[in-house]
């Protein structure tokens, strides 16, 4: 349990916005430095965990953490302006105070992935919670095998972390494949769905782990293609999103059957989540 005994788990820690960057139309990357006790709670969060961010006066919402503690004490979140909380967050600037609760949920078993080849499939804003996986692999490159990054978005302007692609490509034994649904004149990569790209790249399943995050329908079809390529459900991991109001297993909102995305996930192997995916579309 990552929420410590004694602390009221509904009470946010205060944090200061130290960076606000435009990443894509309606998507900003927020960097938050926690004040006081909160920083100790976030000293050792793991790739795949999430947190609730408060825009005080409007509310709070859950976001996958897009950073690793190894790279510094600034927590990063890629936030698309969609609802009331994210709209208010987009109004905030550097120096503003936000609330953070967490870290919450389980994480990708990066220790178990050591020595394996990895296929990372990120679609749209779903790429954000996968960035800590990429950062961990790149920071410990020798611990992991071949890294195939399949990165997708509806159009080129919506591709996340574009300024990091050169670093990813330059890393040893690492490939980056890009695809978009709709291209503009400049586009020189693939066109089509990430599942088409996956069939084209066709990673070998032997000793390989596939990791995905994106819209539910993408996860569903990506897991079908992976299985067609010979991947076992237990070799495939997904991090899921759901509407939530507490993040600590109380509000009931995020259930998929008897599993709760917030405490039993958000990271599931397809062996665990497969039977729910159809009712989750």
């Amino acid at each position: 349990m990552t929420i410590r005994n004694g602390h009221n788990a509904m009470l946010p820690y205060l944090g200061k916005l130290v960076t606000v960057q435009d990443m894509a139309p309606e998507i900003k990357l927020f960097g938050i430095e926690l004040l006081n006790v909160g920083s100790a709670q976030f000293a050792d969060y793991q790739p795949g965990q999430f947190a609730f961010v408060s825009a005080f006066g409007v509310g709070e919402a859950p976001f996958g953490i897009a950073s690793t503690p190894e790279r510094g004490n600034v927590l990063e979140f890629a936030v698309q302006r969609l609802g009331a909380v994210t709209t208010e967050m987009h109004e905030l600037g550097e120096g503003d105070i936000v609330g953070v609760r967490g870290p919450m949920g389980n994480w990708f078993p990066m220790e178990d992935f050591k020595g394996h080849d990895l296929v990372v499939l990120g679609g749209g804003i779903g790429g954000a919670p996968l960035r800590p996986v990429l950062q961990t692999v790149l920071d410990h490159r020798a611990d992991y095998g071949h890294l195939n990054i399949l990165w997708a978005a509806r159009n080129p302007s919506l591709l996340l972390f574009r300024e990091e692609y050169d670093t990813w490509r330059a890393a040893p034994d690492t490939e980056l494949h890009l695809t978009v649904d709709e291209a503009d004149g400049e586009w020189e990569h693939d066109l089509g769905l990430i599942t088409d790209l996956l069939e084209k790249v066709a990673p070998a399943p032997k000793n390989t782990i596939a990791i995905t995050c994106g819209p539910p329908i993408m996860i569903y079809y990506a897991s079908k293609v992976l299985q067609k390529l010979g991947f076992e459900p237990k070799q495939c991991y997904a991090t899921l999103e759901a509407r939530m109001h507490c993040g600590i297993g109380k509000c009931g909102r995020c259930n998929m059957g008897e599993k709760l995305v917030c405490v039993d996930g958000p990271v599931f192997s397809i062996a665990e989540a497969g039977r729910f995916l159809e009712s989750y579309l």
Binding site: M10, S54, F56, G57, V58, G59, E60, H245, C246, K250, C251, G252, R253
Partner: peptide, 27 residues
Amino acid sequence: CRCFDVRDEPLPAENGSQHFERIRCWD
């Protein structure tokens, strides 16, 4: 049944400060 929603609602301003309450309500 114990499902709930959480949201912030405004309270009257006081001494130049904005006040809000975070509430949870049945859902």
